[in-house]
């Protein structure tokens, strides 16, 4: 299976930035600093359980649902 990571990242960015373009960039930077570079993941990226777990943790820290 693939694509789950990208979908989770997009969802986290959309929720945390509340649809504001400037804040989307801010959230992307925060993700990179947390060790997840959104530009490295696409719909063809395999669903790596370790990264999915990390994104769940980040979502919890941001208080958003994924």
């Amino acid at each position: 299976m693939s694509g789950q990571i990208k979908n989770m990242i997009d969802s986290i960015i959309a929720q945390k930035s509340k649809g504001d373009g400037a804040l989307s960039q801010l959230v992307k930077t925060k993700l990179v600093l947390k060790g997840i570079d959104p530009s490295k993941f696409g719909l063809a990226t395999p669903d790596d359980p370790a990264i999915i777990q990390k994104l769940k943790q980040i979502a919890m820290e941001f208080q958003v649902a994924v």
Binding site: K16, S17, K18, L23, L26, V27, K30, L33, K34, E61, F62, Q63
Partner: peptide
Amino acid sequence: MDSIGNSTNIF
């Protein structure tokens, strides 16, 4: 800085 960034969107 990580904790600040988790809680707010202000810089």
